[in-house]
Amino acid sequence: MQLSLTTPALLFSAISLLLLAYTNRFLSLAALIRSLGNQAGACGVADAQIANLRQRIRLIRWMQEAGVLSFTLCVLSMLLIYLDKHGLAFWSFGASLALLIYSLMLSVVEIRISQKAIDIFLDSLKR
């Protein structure tokens, strides 16, 4: 398979938008954590929400790290193509894609945990 300079360049906008979305999630969670800290709600619900939020923050950090590493390897593959090191560029681009897939899978897990947080909140409203 031949890898041209434009192939990794196509991922730039996708990875950049993905990192922006992850940052927005992180900022939303930070605001939610601050508002939860200002509330004096039921201890059981607050404990469950805090555990959920800790897990989500950890996942978002891993998503961001994988996205940044993916972006870095994508840039590295472009540099390697420019330096006429096509074998290394091929593997660098493949690793970039693998990290992007990992980041997206973590995103799915975080979305599922987010849904559990909403369930915890809705259960507290029934009481």
Rank of each mutant, 00 (worst) to 15 (best):
R61L: 13
G44S: 06
A66N: 08
S77A: 12
S35C: 09
G41D: 04
M105N: 08
F93W: 04
S4M: 11
L104V: 09
Q115L: 11
L88R: 04
S124Y: 12
R127D: 15
L5A: 10
K126P: 03
S13F: 11
R112K: 08
S4W: 06
A21G: 05
L59T: 04
Q39R: 15
A21V: 04
S35V: 15
G44Q: 05
S13K: 10
S13T: 11
E65K: 10
D119I: 10
L99N: 01
L32I: 15
V75R: 05
L88I: 03
S70P: 12
Q2G: 11
A30Q: 12
W91N: 01
R34C: 12
K116S: 12
S16I: 00
A89V: 01
A98M: 11
C43W: 15
I60P: 12
I33V: 02
S96Y: 01
L80V: 02
T7N: 13
N24S: 03
S70C: 08
S107A: 12
L76I: 13
K85P: 03
R54Y: 01
A14G: 10
A30R: 10
Y102W: 08
L5D: 11
F26Y: 05
D123E: 10
S92I: 14
W91I: 00
L36C: 05
Q64A: 14
Q2R: 14
L3H: 00
R112V: 06
L17M: 04
L76K: 10
V109P: 02
W62Q: 10
D47H: 06
L32F: 10
L73A: 02
T6M: 05
E110L: 06
A95T: 00
A30H: 08
R34Y: 11
N38V: 15
I120W: 01
C43Y: 15
I120M: 00
R25N: 14
L97Q: 04
V109F: 01
S107Q: 07
A42R: 14
V45L: 00
G67L: 01
A98I: 15
L3P: 00
T23E: 07
S4V: 14
R56Q: 08
I120V: 09
I81G: 02
Y22L: 08
G37C: 09
R54F: 02
T7V: 15
L125E: 09
A21D: 03
A117C: 03
Q64F: 06
K116F: 03
G44V: 08
A31Y: 09
S16V: 00
Q49N: 10
A42K: 13
A14R: 04
L99V: 04
S92Y: 11
I15E: 15
Y82V: 01
I60H: 04
D123G: 03
S77C: 07
G87E: 14
A95M: 04
W62C: 04
S103H: 02
Y82S: 08
T72N: 08
N24R: 03
W62T: 06
V108N: 12
S4F: 11
N38I: 13
Q55F: 12
Q39H: 12
P8W: 02
S124A: 07
L19V: 00
A40Q: 14
I101F: 02
F26S: 14
L80G: 03
G44H: 05
G67I: 00
T7G: 09
F71R: 09
S107N: 11
E65Q: 12
L36I: 03
A31I: 14
L104K: 02
L11N: 09
L69H: 11
A48T: 09
L36V: 07
